[in-house]
């Protein structure tokens, strides 16, 4: 692989990690959704570039799905839900921004150290991709842990899943990538938007998971 295409792949994958960081500190839901759409665009670019470099036309499908579904359909739908629920003012975070960012930096360095050491045998592009992918996965997890609001938890999960798609497309010639991305997208859309948020709103008039916690019957 020539130097330029490697650099471009590197740049886009790195951009994905950067956007994941930017997701961490968005404290308004609309801004968070916009940022998620941006992340999906970057992912689509990365997947498209991988399709071109690896000469794997089926990856263009994954890129197209990512672009259409995650960059447009899901953010628009979530926008509407948030607006309808009237919860667009603020994202309540459990942990303050600075510790979250520090934890994020620690997680990224951890994944770099682990992945680069472990994958010495693999080719350079796959190594870098896996390291970035693990960073995105861990940052997504971190976001799910530090957020309380159902919408932002879903965004955290989807950003985690973006990391998985990055890893899957970076693994050259991996079968079932398209199927996996389709399954993921459809099921997320189906479950989260169609059923859960609707019902949770119906029951609580709030999508704050704190409200869910209070309804637990474990301790009396």
């Amino acid at each position: 692989m020539d130097r330029l295409s490697f650099d471009i792949a590197h740049l886009v994958a790195g951009g994905l990690v950067l956007v994941s960081f930017m997701l961490l500190y968005q404290d308004r839901l609309f801004a968070l959704l916009n940022m998620f759409a941006l992340q999906a665009v970057v992912l689509a670019l990365s997947v498209g570039w991988q399709a071109y470099v690896q000469d794997a036309p089926h990856l263009y499908i994954t890129a197209a799905i990512t672009l259409a579904f995650k960059a447009i359909v899901i953010p628009v739908a979530l926008h509407r839900i948030v607006a309808r629920l009237g919860i667009h003012r603020e994202v309540e975070t459990v942990v303050a921004t600075v510790p979250t960012m520090l934890a994020g930096i620690a997680l990224v360095s951890l994944s770099m150290v682990v992945m680069l050491r472990v994958t010495q045998g693999a080719d350079a592009l796959a190594r870098e991709d896996l390291a970035f992918a693990l960073s995105v996965v861990l940052l997504g997890l971190l976001m799910m842990v530090t957020r309380r609001n159902a919408v932002s938890q879903v965004v955290g999960f989807m950003s985690l899943e973006n990391g998985l798609i990055l890893a899957a497309t970076g693994a050259k010639g991996m079968p079932l990538v398209v199927e996996i991305s389709v399954a993921f997208s459809i099921l997320i859309a189906l479950i989260v938007i169609g059923i859960f948020l609707f019902r949770i709103r119906e029951r609580f008039d709030s999508v704050d998971l704190q409200a869910l916690d209070e309804s637990r019957g474990e301790s009396r």
Partner: peptide
């Protein structure tokens, strides 16, 4: 309320578990 909380918790934790498993699967392929 409680059924929804249970389902939500299961969905979130189950999805995270399943995501980690996919990452492991990709690593096996690598």
């Amino acid at each position: 309320d409680r059924a929804l909380e249970a389902a939500w918790k299961y969905f979130i934790l189950g999805s995270v578990g399943i995501a980690l498993a996919l990452f492991g699967t990709i690593l096996i392929y690598m």
